[in-house]
Amino acid sequence: MKILVPVKRVIDYNVRPRVKADGSGVDLANVKMSMNPFDEIAVEEAIRLKEKGAAEEIIAVSIGPAKAQETLRTALAMGADRAILVQTDDQVEPLAVAKILKAIADEEAPGIVMLGKQAIDDDSNQTGQMLAALMGRPQGTFASKVEVSGDSVTVTREVDGGLETESLKLPAVVTTDLRLNEPRYASLPNIMKAKSKPLATKSPADYGVDTTPRLKVTKVSEPPVRQAGVKVANVDELVAKLKALGVA
């Protein structure tokens, strides 16, 4: 079985994003970029499934600029077998991403498409669901545990009321949540080996997908600064202040 793992190049989660002076978007100049953390969890889980003998090949895919090769090399260093870069400088929206991934999945015929539940740059949480709909495949979202047995995969997912367990017939789409695993660090030997692993470069046109944005960003701004809180000496003072605010 093949596992297809889409990964996205985003601003590193340790970096505080800066808004451009003209409010047209987020400033990416001289900013550290890395793999989307949820996608990193998906890569790790795919590797673990392969180590258990449930998968034979892991294919990492990224859709973005030429520099996204660095993100794919990270996935290869972690343990992916080969990679595909769909190179474009457009701001690709979730629906276009899902269409490209469907075309790749039609070619590669993976048993599982495993991707992060959302990207930390736009927080859309749409691509996995859209991909499952386009492919007509069952989906397990927000996975905190994944087990493959025969021609099915059991996904334990986090819901508001606790945990929900679903059994999906393969092929299926799975999106990973934070508590699924802790991704490994790529060792230096594996980083060196990743340089020789195959990485194919394609374009959206190769898959017949138009990546022209359907949405227009009118303005990006910093969130308002929170006002400092006020300390109170006792409960009576707290109640008095709440009454003055019309809360109590």
Results as ranks from 00 to 15, higher is better:
Val235Met: 15
Asp177Gly: 02
Met114Lys: 00
Asp123Cys: 08
Val153Thr: 00
Thr141Asp: 01
Leu95Phe: 15
Gln91Cys: 06
Lys145Met: 09
Asp160Arg: 09
Leu115Val: 11
Lys102Ile: 02
Ile41Glu: 03
Lys216Gly: 08
Asp106Met: 03
Asp121Gln: 09
Glu56Met: 08
Val19Trp: 08
Lys8Val: 05
Asn125Gln: 07
Glu237Pro: 06
Gly53Thr: 01
Lys216Ala: 14
Pro171Tyr: 02
Ile47Phe: 11
Lys2Asn: 11
Ser187Ile: 05
Lys197His: 15
Leu188Asp: 13
Ile100Glu: 01
Pro6Leu: 07
Ser124Val: 05
Ser203Gly: 05
Ser187Arg: 15
Thr175Asn: 04
Pro171Ile: 00
Ala98Gly: 07
Lys117Gln: 13
Val173Leu: 08
Thr71His: 08
Ala54Lys: 12
Asn190Ser: 12
Leu76Ser: 04
Gly116Cys: 02
Thr218Asp: 13
Leu131Lys: 02
Ile112Val: 15
Leu72Lys: 06
Leu163Thr: 11
Thr201Met: 13
Gly246Ala: 06
Thr154Ile: 13
Val5Gln: 04
Ala83Glu: 01
Pro65Arg: 09
Ala60Ile: 09
Asn36Pro: 08
Met1Val: 12
Ala80Leu: 05
Ile191Tyr: 04
Gln118His: 11
Ser149Lys: 14
Asp210Gly: 11
Arg184Pro: 04
Lys193Leu: 14
Gly162Cys: 09
Val146Glu: 02
Gly53Ile: 02
Gly79Phe: 07
Leu242Asp: 02
Lys8Trp: 08
Ala83Trp: 03
Pro138Tyr: 07
Arg16Pro: 05
Gln129Asn: 10
Ser34Ile: 03
Thr175Met: 06
Ala60Tyr: 09
Leu178Asn: 14
Ala60Val: 14
Ala75Lys: 00
Ser152Leu: 05
Leu242Phe: 13
Asn190Glu: 10
Asp106Phe: 01
Leu170Tyr: 00
Ile120Trp: 04
Met192His: 03
Asn14His: 15
Ser62Leu: 09
Ala133Gly: 14
Val230His: 10
Pro189Glu: 06
Ala60Asn: 07
Ala133Ile: 12
Leu49Asn: 03
Ala233Gly: 08
Ser149Leu: 13
Ser152His: 08
Thr212Glu: 12
Met78Gln: 12
Lys67Trp: 10
Asp177Phe: 07
Pro65Val: 10
Leu188Ile: 15
Thr212Pro: 08
Glu237Gln: 11
Gly53Gln: 04
Pro17His: 03
Arg179Phe: 13
Val220Asn: 04
Gln227Cys: 05
Ala133His: 13
Leu134Phe: 14
Ile11Val: 13
Ile120Gln: 02
Ala66Leu: 13
Asp39Ala: 03
Ala46Ser: 10
Pro204Ser: 05
Asp206Tyr: 09
Tyr185Ser: 12
Leu188Pro: 10
Ala133Asp: 09
Gln227Leu: 11
Pro110Gln: 00
